[in-house]
């Protein structure tokens, strides 16, 4: 459904490399995630696929249409939700939806089944101006507007950035339901915890793809053993473990530290506990854990 081959994009006369030889493909009906921080190149890729930006080199296509030669077809048949809120703030909820339907030569009624689940939540406020909606509601309306012409593929650029955890969960539930209706979705996010909800993900950093896999396989590919360590004094625990000779890496993860060792060794745990005791750490808890996507991302970043 979506294909990229060696796409490269620079800005400022070649001085800033935004997308560095990126290739991947997305199958029909897939929920595909671009995961990475600001500056990873996610938005540039979306803009190239939405035919709003020309790549320096490489080829890309959407539903078989080339992003350069067939841009007209692509524009008529995709839904694109940019990173910045881009609806008309001084039109009402209903007016915005009507406007986008008309623009694509259709009517709200024609594809209402696609947006119904989402739109019923907005309906009580249909006369409210879009600019007066909360962050979560704005995103729901933008999703409706991107869907109303029944696109073959949906491009969503950071739809959940700045949205609170509860609204984020709701938004992802909607994406799941759209996927069940057969819509191909490419979505980007800086929140690593959302990666698990995709069929496959591309982990991106500085314009490059570090890995394209299902979330399960990315976790399976994590080579090291990972330990969670906690004590009542987390801040000193972190600096102690950073100085420990067996430590490969150590990072704070919520209420514990995630620790990996340079080499696999049965005695790692015992030696760590002895070392921490010598550093006057008391009530240390240490257990082996499975890595998450964020652990994998950090580990790939450092390779």
């Amino acid at each position: 459904m979506v294909e990229l081959n060696n796409i490269r994009k620079t800005y400022n006369k070649g001085s800033v490399l935004a997308v560095d030889s990126v290739s991947f493909s997305v199958s029909e009906g897939e929920l595909f995630g671009l995961i990475g921080p600001d500056g990873a190149g996610k938005s540039s890729i979306f803009r190239i696929l939405a035919t709003l930006l020309l790549a320096d080199s490489g080829t890309a296509s959407v539903n078989g249409w080339d992003v350069v030669n067939d841009y007209h077809k692509i524009r008529n048949n995709i839904g694109y939700m940019p990173g910045r809120f881009s609806l008309y703030q001084d039109l009402s909820v209903e007016e915005n939806l009507e406007f986008f339907a008309t623009l694509f030569g259709t009517k709200i009624q024609e594809n209402y089944h696609l947006v119904k689940d989402i739109y019923v939540q907005l309906e009580p406020f249909k006369d409210r101006r879009a600019g007066k909606l909360s962050g979560g509601m704005k995103q729901k309306l933008a999703l409706c507007c991107a869907l109303i012409h029944k696109p073959v593929v949906l491009f969503l650029d950071e739809p959940t950035t700045g949205v609170d955890p509860v609204s984020r969960k709701e938004f992802w539930n909607m994406l799941k339901r759209l996927k069940e209706q057969g819509i191909t979705i490419v979505v980007s996010t800086p929140y690593m915890d959302e990666a698990n909800l995709c069929d496959r993900i591309a982990l991106m950093q500085n314009g490059k793809i570090m890995s394209v896999e299902s979330p399960e396989n990315i976790i399976k590919d994590y080579k090291n053993e990972l330990w969670a360590v906690a004590s009542p004094s987390m801040h000193t625990l972190l600096s102690d473990l950073r100085q420990f000779e067996l430590t490969e890496s150590c990072y704070a993860f919520g209420d514990s530290l995630h620790l990996s060792f340079k080499t696999k060794n049965e005695n790692n745990r015992t030696e760590t506990l002895q070392y921490l005791e010598s550093r006057n750490q008391r009530e240390v808890e240490m257990k082996k854990i499975n890595p998450g996507i964020e652990d994998c991302f950090i580990s790939l970043m450092q390779q």
């Binding site: 990475g36 921080p37 600001d38 950035t161 700045g162 800086p190 690593m192 950093q205 801040h235 972190l238 990072y251 704070a252 964020e294 991302f297 950090i298 970043m301 450092q302």
Partner: peptide, 20 residues
């Protein structure tokens, strides 16, 4: 106010070390 939005996981953690 949401100081760490959008940064990579390592930078986010370094930022918290500055807060500490």
């Amino acid at each position: 106010d949401e100081p760490t939005g959008g940064v990579d996981p390592v930078t986010r953690r370094q930022f918290w070390e500055m807060i500490y």
